[in-house]
Design a protein around this nucleic acid. Structure first.
Lengths: 342, 342
DNA sequence: GCCTGAGATGGTAGCGCTACCATTTGCATG
DNA sequence: CATGCAAATGGTAGCGCTACCATCTCAGGC
């Protein structure tokens, strides 16, 4: 009566059950599972047999409580449906699928406040690592990251002042490269069309502007943006708006590929010849860019690799290795296609 | 010396610190946080003040261990990048953002084995609820779901035999509706083009076949499928393959919208008139379908609502209410557009 | 004034695991 | 042959929280 056998636990086998069955101490079971090298092969086999027979699965909550460290990667992204972040997340998942680490994703909805709240929630679990999109955290979010007590990787962008580590590329350079390409292809009245306009889009715009300024061709009326979330439909609308403002437009650099596709469709509909009358450049290089008719020039970004690389860096830091590079620039690649082949 | 103050904890305030500061028992703090109604307003205020001052955040791991229940929703989807599942997941996130529940997503990669493994991992945490995509679990996965000891919602599809609850629609009816629409529009040599061909795609194919059989127009050479993951590029390739097999093809029902878009692009490229020479129907009705030129007829599915509804049902079950309906069919809607307007 | 019961609060005893510190053993060293 | 040391194993004491079961207070009924 003194031992009301598993009062709350629901009857699942515990480490003590395994230990009893294997005839060893509970600690040894724990060790056999976590650091097999430190347990003799004999016992290891015995313990494995007991684990298999009982169907024992360690309780991650108890483990986290006892070791003051959860085997969880916290991942913060601004959107779940944006293909760009989905690819990063996929890279993270694939890199972690054989590890004991679980993943917890937070959706910040592009909001600094929401990011702070999620960081608070994530932090309370003492995660093994944090991966966050972007480099423009609020001061308070930044403090939370600094005090998280675990490796932190900022992804998607590079910048001068990492919290801990960074993997990404320069959106400013990407934007400039896109605009310079249009310039070189002979376009002159080159517009910028952008939706959502998060900090990364802002920097692409800045890159576009730098190229246009250098060519002495910048005009504020060339820029058409909106904070509204991006979509193909919106691309079409923004393009019509841009054309209305500036009918002599002969090229557009789009914030992203959805917008670019919307522009292309509107050109079809309005019988505007691409690339003769209008040149189009997208950003990210989604699969469809190479198949569309005409195919669309785009700045290819390495989203999946950003995810895998971020995990590799975090894992290495968890293992106690200081990274050779704290800032990893994965770059981008301009994919020249029919849409700018004047 | 007997009490080495927070040896492992990392110095974060605990419930005991809050209790001390507020001059109450630890239990009362716990209650004030979880069931405010059961604590007098006076104490509640005092406790809140102590919580704020100390910056106390409850440890979810300790909570889960003590209560044998983690405030976690486990979500299992076959793909993270497929927009369809991303939308479902977004619905889940949005519905849960103001709740104490965290979300843990597992990516099964369309693999039953992987699904079993993840169910094992998720189950070990004693989640508050499980949401899984599809109804074709392996027997072993099904057993894990039945013994999970929490509400389970199968999403995306409806079927006769839920583990617990279901939210979705009939893919068979969706496929049949699409094919019947093409038939009614006057197309005769209607092909089916499908990538990935997961169980849901199989059922759409079955629906297509039922309609074609009923019209006496089915021919095995009309069907072109591949297990390869879907993409716009692949849509183009499969369409060329289909045309090569059956040059007199005058319509296609595509497995999904990416494939449909690939078909459309190839038609542009090969100067095949849509809808005159070829009618196209997609599935899911992504945003771009209504903007493309010509716009593409598609079967609209309510993905976001599937997510929100699944959460609502799970939450209600957690609260102890038996659901009125265990199986919720959210249906679909055929969006007639230019691509079938012969 | 006593009893009853509901509401508010607290103490104790774990939840299942691991950090920390023994203890034991075997074997090379002097 | 004592000594030292590493490798293997185990015991104890929590980790921070909540379930369970008191205890206490106070209103209302007799």
């Amino acid at each position: 009566m003194t031992k009301p056998r598993s009062r709350r636990g629901g009857g699942r086998p515990t480490i003590a059950d395994v230990a009893r069955k294997a005839g060893v101490g509970a600690i040894t079971v724990s060790r056999a599972l976590r650091e097999p090298g430190r347990v003799s092969e004999d016992l290891r086999r015995q313990i494995q047999a007991a684990v298999d027979e009982l169907g024992y699965v360690p309780d991650p909550n108890a483990r986290a409580l006892a070791s003051a460290r959860a085997e969880v990667f916290g991942v913060l992204v601004p959107s779940l449906t944006n293909n760009v972040f989905a690819e990063v997340v996929r890279g993270i998942y694939d890199s972690l699928s054989d590890s004991p680490f679980r993943i917890q994703i937070g959706n910040t909805h592009y909001s600094g406040l929401e990011e702070e709240r999620l960081l608070q929630v994530f932090g309370s679990q003492r995660p093994a690592a944090l991966i966050v999109a972007g480099i423009d955290q609020t001061p308070s979010a930044r403090r939370l990251l600094e005090n998280a007590g675990c490796p932190v990787v900022q992804v998607m962008e590079t910048g001068p002042d990492p919290v801990d580590m960074m993997v990404g590329f320069s959106h400013l350079d990407g934007g400039r490269t896109a605009a310079e390409h249009l310039l070189q292809a002979g376009y002159r009245k080159i517009g910028f069309i952008g939706a959502r306009m998060d900090p990364r889009s802002q920097r692409r715009l800045a890159g576009y502007r730098a190229a246009m300024d250098a060519a002495g061709l910048f005009d504020a009326r060339l820029v058409t943006t909106t904070p509204v979330p991006s979509s193909v439909t919106l691309g079409r609308e923004l393009f019509r708006e841009a054309l209305a403002k500036m009918p002599t437009l002969d090229g557009v650099f789009c914030n992203n590929d959805d917008i670019a596709l919307g522009v292309l469709f509107e050109c079809h509909r309005a019988s505007i010849d691409v690339p003769k009358q209008i040149g189009i450049v997208g950003f990210n290089d989604l699969d469809m860019m190479q198949v569309s008719f005409p195919s669309i020039t785009s700045v290819r970004t390495h989203r999946y690799e950003i995810g895998t690389r971020a995990v590799a860096m975090a894992l290495s830091a968890i293992a106690g290795n200081r990274p050779e590079q704290r800032i990893v620039d994965l770059g981008f690649e301009l994919m020249r296609r029919e849409s700018t082949g004047r």
